[in-house]
Amino acid sequence: MALIEIENLSVTFTTAGRKVRAVQDVSFKVEAQQSFGLVGESGSGKSTILRAICGMAPITGGQIRIDGKPLPTPRGRAFAAQVQMVFQDPYASLHPRHTVDRVLSEPLAIHGQGGSDAKIEQALIDVGLPPAFRFRYPHQLSGGQRQRVAIARALMLQPQILLLDEPTSALDASVQAETLNLLSRLRAERGLTFVMVSHDLAVIDHMCDRVLVMQNGQAVEELSREALASAAMTTPYARALFAASADRMLEG
């Protein structure tokens, strides 16, 4: 049985009387310890799928199951300990007036877990930040360092599943490499399951075992890593996406 099962998921926002069908009838499965990619057109509902899993988007149809069990609404603490998310923009995802220490201790406080000092220092070491950074504020950190703090926060509760919304698109090439290496290492060490959104097919190819291509709220085509690398896609949109990424090929 797959760890994450999404069946005919639909999300519809209603604003000012209009209906926005952000996600329509999307289904996919992610096995435990797999890394699953989401790519596709801007505005096609990739972030919305991640938010729907977290209970932050209005689900109007379909089902999301984790470990075979449908998710409760609201999601609750048990869910928080199982699934965490890393946001795209490291400049927007850390509270500007909280120190790294506060950011990392908050999840422990919410869940009434003790031993925070040791855990925070360990968490910083795990993401490759010097413990001296513990009492810094976000504005004293670079983009890559902030993203590491955000990843450390997501890992504080030892979740099984990490949802990553374009974790490196705001980062430069060298910091992207550091962050991707960090994520791969943590996944191997802890047996994490990833669902990862990215625009860069090279990043998806580097990180993911399977990938779902989306357009305009709908799933277009699901590909394995091998199919992606050998350009074995069948739908025109997936092809176009691949063709536009020609400069990202090995020997490109």
Binding site: A173, Q176, A177, N181, S184, L201, D205, S230, M249, L250
Partner: peptide, 17 residues
């Protein structure tokens, strides 16, 4: 900087820093 970039079909080992 160029060497840090992943490539489609490239190795999945650690990217060079």
């Amino acid at each position: 900087l160029l060497n840090c970039l992943p490539r489609i079909g490239g190795s999945r080992g650690a990217l060079p820093a």
